[in-house]
Design a binder for these strands. Structure first.
Length: 576
RNA sequence: GCAUCGAUGGUCUAGUGGUAUGACUUAAGCCUUCCAAGCUUAUAGCCCGGGUUCAAUUCCCGGUCGAUGCACCA
């Protein structure tokens, strides 16, 4: 192990562990890779990040939150493609015991189209290939499917297969019909979900970057396919500018170029207004939780990198000291892929009836048979003949239809041909889905990493988490300068008044005042209120800013409103 | 999963075939009129399992976790 390492990752994770942000899970039994616990401060911070996300998507955009089970039955994931597409064909090298992707081995060995082979075929095909790890010829191996979904069974008897969801998105898709009714049958509408998802990663590493259980915040926005280029509030972000890294630039190894959303849409860089709107909103949201804009870029997926359902896909990437650019948010145009898939698998229509402005007049010919005669005459075949007649081309003689290979001539007097003009009032449309999908844990890691700072205060090193006040777990600390002369009583009262206004205030009177400030600095508490001897004279206290360490006197009765304005960002400390 | 390296109070560490050093932190008390001050006291540790041994934190084997490389990461 490197001692005294300068690596921010190690320093920040060490602090996170020590101060109760992030812990290895079930440590007393030995931790499990890919799982973490959020300690008291971490859980608080994560909650604040989620609440900011809610403010953006639920309150500002009006996309309500739903909550679906984390376990769903097999059909859901058969339809979504996860049962088939979320698994890798793998084999184990008999020599070095290395697990290998069987299709990769085959491709390296010049075997064509390994992805369409059955496991046995693939096993036979790769017997002569070499192992990428030890260079031995594989020989006889077994090819098996490793599915990244955790499988379980529902109920006793174990017949019914369930999976832990690998994304929250499917919940919004399977609830489509209910959501459509809830939003009174009108497009566009959206639903969001914040919750746990599970992927049984083969080898999770990188701390909280790749987890087997992680929190996603996903929005599924259902839009008319022809309206994707008309977001009603696009103006809000039209001039919003950020670095975009298109797939063309990536192929040329060029850097990201700043571009406004209007320009990106006009030039066809981003597929449509909807996607561009959420690209901008995502940038806005990430900056709001304290991500530095210079550490943020949006990268377009390469054509071969895109998921099978998506037409255009952008990732918000945050630059990490340790991990480089980390994919943190995925913004995809999922088209109508998911709704089609679920409609087909479930047999439930997942369409929206879109009324035309003016009903369309359409000429239509209806053939109305005289069923009382047809029924008696053709008995069991009557129904089939009736259906065949509807598509027949009758002459004045009658109509010829074919049912089950048998030809029938139906005389003209047994049916009536009616030509009519009907009003078509609208059509059934399968909406397209725009999906912003956020990795909350990765956002939390980025917040932690970027907040970490060391500076020198009064000649002494100071560790300080420079959280944006809106994500800091503890919002304000309240200290009596001395634990006597009623200073502590007054401080307790102030803490109480803050808590009553919904502010998380921590009272502390232990040891020297300097130590208390430093302790709060290390957990990122942005403000501290100190009660001193002047307080008793003039009912004022000092409020201290974590970053500048400056202090300003304010009246006691202004404390809750001032702190709340400072925390929500409507007031800056420098303005005091 | 393979390979290499590592694991000693909450943290950083010293050291050892005979249960462990120091500092910081934390807690209680004294002191203290604004940025980790001082004094006293207390709490707390050898990753887990097996083996060798009279005795294992130490040596050996296996595992877990972490770091790195390979592989993997719809």
């Amino acid at each position: 192990m490197i001692q005294g390492s300068n690596d921010v990752f190690e320093k920040v994770m060490d602090l996170a562990k020590r101060r109760g942000f992030i812990w290895p899970t079930s440590e007393c039994y030995g931790a499990v890779a890919g799982f973490i616990d959020y300690g008291p401060l971490g859980a608080m911070m994560k909650r604040r990040v989620e609440d900011i996300w809610r403010d953006f998507y639920v309150i500002q955009e009006g996309y309500y939150e739903i909550e679906c089970p984390t376990i769903a039955q097999e059909s859901v994931f058969i339809a979504s493609g996860h049962v088939k597409g979320f698994s890798d064909k793998m084999c184990q090298c008999p020599h070095c015991k290395e697990f290998l992707r069987a299709d990769h081995v085959a491709e390296a060995g010049g075997i064509k189209n390994p992805s369409i082979m059955k496991n046995e075929e693939l096993a036979a095909a790769i017997a002569s290939c070499t192992c990428a790890a030890c260079d031995e010829v594989l020989g006889i191996v077994e090819v098996f499917n490793f599915n990244l979904m955790f499988q379980t069974t529902i109920g006793p008897g174990s017949q019914r297969i369930g999976y832990l969801r690998p994304e929250t998105a499917q919940g919004m898709f399977v609830d489509f019909s209910r959501l459509l009714r809830f939003y009174r049958d009108k497009l566009p509408f959206g639903a969001v979900q914040i919750g746990k998802s599970y992927r049984n990663e083969i080898s999770p590493r990188q701390g909280m970057i790749r987890l087997r259980e992680f929190t996603q915040a996903e929005a599924e926005i259902f839009v008319h396919p022809n309206e994707k280029n008309h977001h009603p509030s696009f103006k809000r972000y039209a001039d919003y500018t950020m670095p975009l890294l298109t797939y063309i630039q990536q192929e040329k190894c060029e850097d990201a170029v700043p571009m406004s959303m209007q320009e990106a849409v006009d030039k066809g860089v981003i597929a449509n207004e909807y996607l561009a709107y959420y690209v901008a909103l995502t940038h806005h949201l990430l900056v709001t939780i304290g991500i530095k804009p210079e550490r943020l870029r949006f990268r377009q997926h390469l054509p071969d990198e895109r998921a099978h359902y998506a037409t255009d896909c952008w990732d918000a990437e945050i630059r990490s000291e340790r991990f480089g650019w980390v994919e943190t948010v995925g913004l995809a145009d999922r088209t109508d892929y998911d709704l089609h898939a679920h409609a087909k698998e479930s047999g439930t229509a997942m369409t929206v009836f879109i009324q035309y402005d003016e009903p369309k007049k359409v000429a239509r010919r209806r053939i109305i048979p005289n069923m009382s005669v047809l029924g008696k005459q053709y008995r069991t075949k009557a129904k089939a003949i009736f259906e065949a007649l509807a598509n027949a081309t009758p002459t004045s003689e009658g109509a010829d239809v074919e049912v089950e290979g048998e030809k029938f001539h139906i005389p003209a007097n047994l049916f009536e041909v009616r030509d009519e003009i009907v009003d078509i009032r609208g059509e059934e449309v399968v909406p397209h889905v725009i999906e912003p999908s956020y990795g909350i844990d990765r956002m939390c890691y980025a917040v932690l990493e970027q907040a970490y700072d060391e500076d020198v205060a009064d000649g002494e090193a100071r560790t300080v988490m420079r959280f944006s006040p809106n994500v800091a777990p503890i919002q304000v600390a309240v200290f009596p300068l001395m634990t006597r002369d009623e200073l502590d009583t007054i401080a307790h009262e102030i803490a109480r008044s803050l808590q009553k206004t919904g502010i998380l205030a921590e009272y502390d009177d232990s040891g020297a005042i300097g130590r208390r400030y430093r302790r709060q600095d290390e957990i990122g508490t942005p403000f501290a209120i100190t009660v001193d001897y002047d307080t008793k004279e003039d009912r004022t206290v000092t409020i201290r800013d974590r970053d500048s360490m400056k202090q300003v006197r304010i009246a006691i009765d202004k404390v809750p409103s001032t702190v709340s304005a400072l925390v929500d960002g409507s007031l800056k400390f420098a303005q005091l």
